[in-house]
């Protein structure tokens, strides 16, 4: 329970950054933190006490492996999610740079007052 709550707190921190910060790069950082929190939560869901990695090694009994390994399915989802997160971060940074070039400012509030 405690561990799930910590993931929720991490998500809250990222949400706070997204809502309160006015600097666009800070907002990007907030979104990255939310992403981290979701990944962490998914990995926590698959864990069992004393769990080992879901990778069978040559000398290992199949029954012992099935009994001890953690859930591989969330790991697969998180693996793709991490790499997509990297592509997303690049796209966000690209947009931020373009916005800065166009408006000469990274203040989200000022930007919404200006007309394109």
């Amino acid at each position: 329970m405690m561990m799930y709550a910590l993931a929720a707190v991490l998500l809250g921190v990222g949400l706070y950054g997204l809502l309160v910060k006015r600097h666009l790069l800070k907002k990007v950082l907030g979104l990255l933190i939310v992403e981290h929190a979701v990944n962490l939560f998914l990995i926590q869901l698959g864990y069992i006490d004393g769990g080992i990695a879901p990778i069978r090694t040559a000398g290992e009994e199949a029954a012992a492996f099935v009994g001890n390994a953690v859930d591989p399915l969330p790991q697969v989802l998180v693996l793709t999610s991490i790499v997509i997160g990297l592509g997303l971060a690049m796209l966000m940074v690209a947009l931020t740079l373009r916005i800065y070039q166009r408006y000469g400012s990274l203040d989200a509030d000022r930007m919404s007052e200006l007309k394109g």
Binding site: G46, P54, V78
Partner: peptide, 18 residues
């Protein structure tokens, strides 16, 4: 490191490099 402790070395490697 948290991922590594949670039994997910695949994720840990990818996370470091990313």
């Amino acid at each position: 490191i948290v991922f590594l402790l949670l039994g997910a070395p695949d994720i840990a490697i990818t996370q470091v490099v990313v």
